[in-house]
Amino acid sequence: MVLVFIIVSIAIILLEAPGLVKKKMWRELAAFLAYLSLGMALVIPQALGVKLPNPTKAIEALFRPLAELLK
């Protein structure tokens, strides 16, 4: 699974980045890379089997009093 995501990421970079470099859209390139690394940071650990905290739980905790109403 890790391999799958690495391949996907490389493919994404190869598809998008050259065009951005050519058009000198540096800002876009930075945003692109930032998002990509964010995505990788989420995906790769999970692919390796690391359990990441689930935001659903946080949201549930935040809205517990109201959520109880809907039980």
Partner: peptide, 18 residues
């Protein structure tokens, strides 16, 4: 050229998935 590589990578991935 890079695009072609990316294309083949995705193709390989697709075959893997398929």
């Amino acid at each position: 050229m890079l695009k072609k590589i990316a294309f083949f990578l995705l193709l390989a991935l697709l075959t893997g998935i398929l």
